[in-house]
Simulated assay, not measured.
Amino acid sequence: MGIKLRKEDVDNLIRSISPKVKVFAPKVFEGKGRFSETDMIRYGEIKDLSEIVFDKKSDFSSKEIITPITQTLFFFTEDEFKEAKGEDFTPVIILRSCDMHAIKRFDDIYLRNGFEDIYYKRVREKAKFIVIGCPNSFENCFCVSMGTNETDSYDAYLKVDEDFVYLDVKDKDIEEAVSSLQKMDCEVMPEFVKENTIKVDIPENIDTRIFKSTMWNEYTERCIACGRCNFVCPTCTCYTMQDIFYKDNKNAGERRRVWASCQVQGYTTMAGGHEFRKPNGDKMRFKVMHKVYDYKKRWGYHMCTGCGRCDDICPQYISMPGAVNKLRKAMDEVTSNE
């Protein structure tokens, strides 16, 4: 059972609860695309449901809302340090099923991986997640193969149809927020994509012998190590630390956590200049195996959610599902060579 609301009332509600509550959703950023005079779709604060882009896939995922690209952790002087204050608003994030599954991966890494990351935890505990449907598959998506095309782990499900909003609400805070609005009970069934054009076949017999396959040589030639695939990926969580020293006092500054990428040069550089996985093919091997092998061994399901953003963004047209679909042949290769 769900509820039907007037869109005008919901828009007024969104505007009235700001700035204590901020609503984020995929929206158009005019002129911010990769090429001149092109637009970009990414997550940003909205004041009106009409700002949400429902019919196109966002270029970036919702992860930049809960784990910002650059985040100050603490400030320091010669004698002391002070933890940076967290955001004092509640984020409400409107996202698709694949990105909701990505939040589960973030929880694994930041909350259930032997420690709790306090910076992530304080945002995660406040955040509300509202899922929107995908009646049709977008280009390069393969979420059905990854089992992330559907979810019931949401605080609310949202559908906007002309002047009306349909909600399936599970969270008591959201239920309370809309309680004063004029509404009507109705049936609300989430719309999730059932089939993608692109499919992947992940063999069950993958093991570390696949490191010796010649399939990775192709990516040494093609990949330019730009790292774009990592930055748009909803499940990539790697970061580096930067200490910023102020010009007016070089003994004072702040420590920041900044997104990093396992695909770029220098990511694995150690003291003395030694670098692991220097060939770009080795970097690609690490990424692919982490998404569909290493992570599953630890958590029981694949890290990749099949959103296809890595394929959308790659300037060399390297395909993640294409690489995954080569794994079976690669295992046959290394097995026959033994």
Rank of each mutant, 00 (worst) to 15 (best):
Lys7Pro: 04
Val10Arg: 00
Ser16Cys: 04
Pro19Asn: 02
Val23Cys: 11
Ala25Leu: 09
Lys27Pro: 00
Glu37Ala: 10
Ser50Tyr: 00
Glu51Thr: 09
Ile52Asp: 11
Val53Glu: 06
Phe76His: 05
Glu80Ala: 13
Gly86Trp: 07
Glu87Ser: 05
Ser97Gly: 02
Ser97Thr: 11
Asp99His: 12
Asp99Met: 06
Ile103Glu: 10
Lys104Gly: 11
Leu111Ala: 08
Arg112Asn: 15
Phe115Glu: 08
Glu116Trp: 02
Ile118Cys: 00
Arg124Phe: 03
Glu125Ser: 15
Phe129Cys: 05
Val131Ser: 10
Ile132Cys: 01
Ser137Trp: 07
Cys141Leu: 09
Val144Asp: 06
Gly147Arg: 04
Ala156Glu: 08
Lys159Leu: 11
Asp161Lys: 14
Phe164Leu: 11
Asp171Met: 04
Asp173Glu: 15
Asp173Ser: 14
Cys186Lys: 11
Pro190Met: 07
Val193Lys: 13
Lys194Asp: 10
Asp201Gly: 07
Asn205Pro: 02
Arg209Asn: 14
Phe211Asn: 10
Ala225Val: 04
Cys226Val: 10
Asn230Trp: 02
Asn230Lys: 00
Val232Ser: 01
Tyr246Thr: 06
Arg255Trp: 09
Ser261Lys: 05
Gln265Leu: 12
Gly266Phe: 08
Thr268Asp: 09
Thr269Lys: 14
Gly272Ser: 06
Arg277Asn: 14
Pro279Cys: 08
Asn280Ser: 08
Gly281Pro: 03
Asp282Ala: 13
Lys283Asp: 02
Arg285Cys: 08
Asp294Trp: 13
Tyr295His: 14
Arg298Val: 15
Met303Glu: 15
Gly306Ile: 08
Arg309Lys: 09
Asp312Arg: 10
Ile313His: 03
Ile318Asp: 01
Gly322Thr: 10
Asn325His: 05
Asn325Ser: 12
Lys326Gly: 03
Ala330Trp: 11
Asp332Asn: 13
